[in-house]
Design a protein around this nucleic acid. Structure first.
Lengths: 143, 143
DNA sequence: GAAACTGTAACTTATATAATTACAGTATGA
DNA sequence: TCATACTGTAATTATATAAGTTACAGTTTC
């Protein structure tokens, strides 16, 4: 998995914690520690899934377009990295005569697909607000 | 995740299906479609976890050292790619004053760790023999 | 119409993955 | 006992993926 999921969750938690729930790609990039263009790419995907809204022009930026208390990480996972659990390389070769070599790809693909669905049910346990609360708890513990 | 898990599962299923449950790295590599040295690397890890035994010298190779009916994919996952669910890149920066930026790494690390344990409970549902049976079923369906 | 934004593609660089080579170590059997 | 056929492992090279960067067109505001 690449780290777009972490970027998306971090950005959404950040927005949820801002008074106006709005920030520019530059502000988010500073906080996430990456390049604004990368933030815009991830945010663009989240916008297409209705999780954030964007406003172009002066005073524009990204604004949370969901309820952090009911938006689960599973939705974010699906938006941003569905299908990435399965490795790009596959073993075996469908063209050979060997039963194992010729059928293992399809079976493993099925397992990875099911494993990913299972994993999504873990992300379904967490909302954006939950993650923010975990962060707050850590923060409090330091004081 | 890299594809050593797929290679390990494929290799073990292949061994389980052989009369003597034994094969050389070259035979396995041919079947898996990769290089024998890569097979030796993965098999070496499986040997250290007691899943296969190896025999050096003439007539040597790898032999299954577990019961395929009771050896779950979770064991193979742990042996071969524990810790790879979490992306290597992390967002945020523990040194900043921002509550979110400075604590998000630890929280996300915890989530990825728990997610991986959850995922392992999926792999626990499958044994090597189960995978072989799935392959056989696909094979039968073609006839 | 200048300024401050997003959207997106193209390009570069860094890192991870896979393939390959090489060779030391080990068991077998003629 | 020596050639042979294996594993074990490290080093190197090649390739694919991820991340960073640049660039610029499009949009909104003032």
């Amino acid at each position: 998995m690449n780290s777009e999921f972490s970027i998306a969750v971090h950005s959404l938690v950040l927005l949820a914690n801002l008074p106006e729930r709005m920030a520019t790609s530059e502000m988010i990039a500073d906080n996430v520690c990456t390049h604004p263009a990368r933030i815009r790419k991830v945010m663009s995907t989240l916008r297409k899934h209705g999780i954030v809204a964007t406003k172009e022009g002066i005073g524009g930026g990204y604004i949370l377009d969901c309820d952090p208390e009911t938006t689960h990480l599973a939705l974010i996972y699906r938006a941003v990295c569905e299908g990435t659990l399965k490795p790009s390389w596959s073993s075996g070769d469908p063209e050979t005569g060997c039963m194992v070599a010729s059928n293992v790809q399809k079976v493993m693909d099925g397992l990875f697909h099911e494993a990913e669905e299972y994993l999504e049910s873990y992300w379904q346990r967490w909302t954006i607000a939950d993650v923010l609360r975990e962060i707050c708890a850590l923060h409090q513990a330091k004081l």
